[in-house]
Design a protein around this nucleic acid. Structure first.
Lengths: 226, 226
DNA sequence: CAATTAATTATACGATAATATAATTAATTG
DNA sequence: CAATTAATTATATTATCGTATAATTAATTG
């Protein structure tokens, strides 16, 4: 799995040149957290994957929890930013974008991450661990996504004025659930032998999910509004 | 959290009367797995919750993994059975039940579990850990749910003959994702102070999810069918 | 009622976890 | 170029994990 890294000097002391070990640690942690969960991933495992000592991880990140935070925020923030940009672009073209366009703009950023191995790992991490370190992951999601999610809720409400913003918000949550689940399955494919097919390994493309999600969002308004 | 159990004799040896400790262990494990994840839950923690030694857990279940299996299957099988019964009941009334009726029959069994604390714990466990012990949970889900899921897929296909059975299956996965996600949020409410409200704590009722999910299922057929 | 089986605790083992500290070497700064 | 800072390893500490074994007591069986 690991080709022996271009030989670094071993032993203590600062190595020559500049190191990109910090990023390597984030990458390795992303993959291991995705595969083994938060509690299931040991710093030793991460360290050995990058071929450094655990003390170096503590040096860079302070603790396991802080390492997780940084892994999560790195790509999470990217998704949030891309969503905001896509929304602004849409709203420049047409004051009130269609429901389908909004759903597409919301889903494309995470879906595009599937292009790389690291991206797939993040998606799996995200869907698997959406609440794993209990308090932590919850707070992380809010910090990272709240602003863009609310912006989309307002836009959906404009496109579907007969639905309250709160109904829209709740349906967005259902959409998030469906795509996270779809991705967590899909992204197991990395580990399977190529060609191996399992019932539970489904590859969804963007339009397929957009079709489903936009229809759900456009369902009739609920009977009684509390 | 634990009122001191009606005093049992301490010390080694078989206790008098008959014990319901096996069920107690399953209940405690269900709650802890749901709250802390598989890797995050220690047998010691489970044991102390039930006020027995870890050796007794090994005695009954053999290993941590087997304990998890049994926790999962206990209510999972119940859901699968109730789904099959509901489907058969529907099909007795009308040869081809409506999409909404099918969705409702599919979702009601897990949703009803929310009535009890143990049920809520299971739902959270299910949604959080839907693949936590990697190979394990995957296989468990298949064993437990495959039959009933396929039966529903056939029924959906009959109600929506312009959709292939495979499209129906894929949309069912999206529906499963959305309700699991909705439940994992909802069920955190156990831990929050009563009255405390978080953006991410949404309570969905059955009809609200049925409305969304049935609309998604009834979306137009996808353009190209591979 | 004697022998066996079931249910339980006590205790220990070896592995591994997260984290902290001190030593070491290279790069940067003044 | 001397002093300081940055990046790294070596090593230790303390805790906890899953599991195994033997002892103990009550229930069941023959």
């Amino acid at each position: 799995m690991n080709q022996p890294k271009a030989s670094r000097r071993k032993g203590p002391g600062r190595p020559e040149g500049q190191s990109r070990i910090r990023e390597d640690i984030l990458d390795a942690a992303e993959i291991l957290f995705a595969e083994l969960g938060y509690a299931g991933t040991s710093l030793r495992h991460v360290a050995s994957e990058v071929d450094v000592t655990t003390a170096l991880i503590t040096y860079y990140f302070g603790s396991k929890e802080k390492l997780f935070r940084e892994v999560f925020q790195r790509k999470g923030q990217q998704i949030a930013n891309e969503r905001m940009e896509a929304l602004e672009r849409l709203q420049k073209e047409q004051a009130v974008p269609s429901t389908s366009d909004l759903v597409r703009a919301f889903l494309a950023p995470p879906l595009n991450l599937r292009a790389t191995r690291q991206g797939r790992a993040f998606l799996r991490l995200h869907s698997r661990l959406h609440m794993e370190p209990e308090e932590l992951s919850f707070e992380l999601r809010r910090q990272t996504y709240d602003e863009s999610t609310r912006a989309f809720a307002r836009a959906f409400h404009q496109a579907l004025p007969h639905l309250s913003e709160s109904v829209v918000m709740r349906r967005m949550s259902l959409i998030i659930g469906s795509y996270l689940y779809a991705f967590s399955d899909t992204n197991r494919m990395d580990e399977l032998a190529p060609g191996a097919q399992s019932t539970y390994n489904i590859f969804y493309d963007l339009e397929e999910i957009v079709l489903f999600a936009a229809s759900g969002m456009q369902a009739p308004a609920p009977a009684e509004e509390s």
